[in-house]
C-alpha cells in the first residue's frame, strides 16, 4: 500500500488546504508517575501545539486529537483556544503507571517544512513530560 493511501483522504485535504501528521509514542518510565500528572502535561503540550498552528497558519485549526493509553484510556481533542483541550473518558487520577502510549493526529491548515518542524517540536515536548 502506498503512502498516499495510508495518509487517507489526501484529495479532500488538498481541497481544503489541510495537511496532517501522526505521532505514536510508546514510553516505559524509569519511575512511576500518576496518571493525572501525565494527562495534565500532555494537555499542555496539545494546547501549545494548537497555539502554534494558529500562529503560523490562517488563524484556525482543523483538529488535533488523540489518545493517552495508560492503565486507563482517555481521548483528547483540541479545536480552539476557547474550548481548550477536552477529554473523553475517566482516569483514576492517583493511579501510578510506568508504561503508556500516546497517539496524536493533527489535521491542520499548515504544511511542508513548517508542519515537519511542529511535529518534531511536539515529540520533544511530549518527551519532556517524562524526563
Amino acid at each position: 500500500m502506498n503512502e498516499k493511501n495510508l495518509d487517507h483522504s489526501h484529495g479532500h485535504l488538498e481541497q481544503d488546504n489541510l495537511d496532517s501528521f501522526t505521532l505514536i509514542i510508546e514510553k516505559k518510565l524509569d519511575k512511576k508517575q500518576e496518571q493525572e500528572n501525565i494527562k495534565n502535561c500532555i494537555s499542555k503540550v496539545i494546547e501549545s501545539l494548537g497555539k502554534k498552528i494558529i500562529e503560523v497558519g490562517p488563524g484556525i485549526i482543523g483538529h488535533i486529537k488523540g489518545r493517552i493509553e495508560m492503565k486507563d484510556k482517555i481521548r483528547f481533542s483540541f479545536v480552539d483556544e476557547k474550548q481548550g483541550v477536552e477529554f473523553e473518558g475517566n482516569i483514576n487520577s492517583e493511579e501510578k503507571i510506568d508504561e503508556l502510549e500516546i497517539k496524536i493526529l493533527a489535521v491542520v491548515p499548515v504544511g511542508g517544512k513548517e508542519l515537519k518542524k511542529i511535529k518534531k517540536k511536539t515529540k520533544e515536548e511530549v518527551d519532556k513530560c517524562f524526563n
Binding site: 495518509d7 501522526t22 488523540g66 481521548r75 473523553e88 473518558g89
Partner: peptide
C-alpha cells in the same frame, strides 16, 4: 477513522 490511527473507533470501544 482518518489516517493511520483509529482514535475514534477505539474511543467508542472504550465506552
Amino acid at each position: 477513522d482518518f489516517g493511520q490511527i483509529a482514535i475514534d473507533g477505539e474511543t467508542l470501544n472504550d465506552f
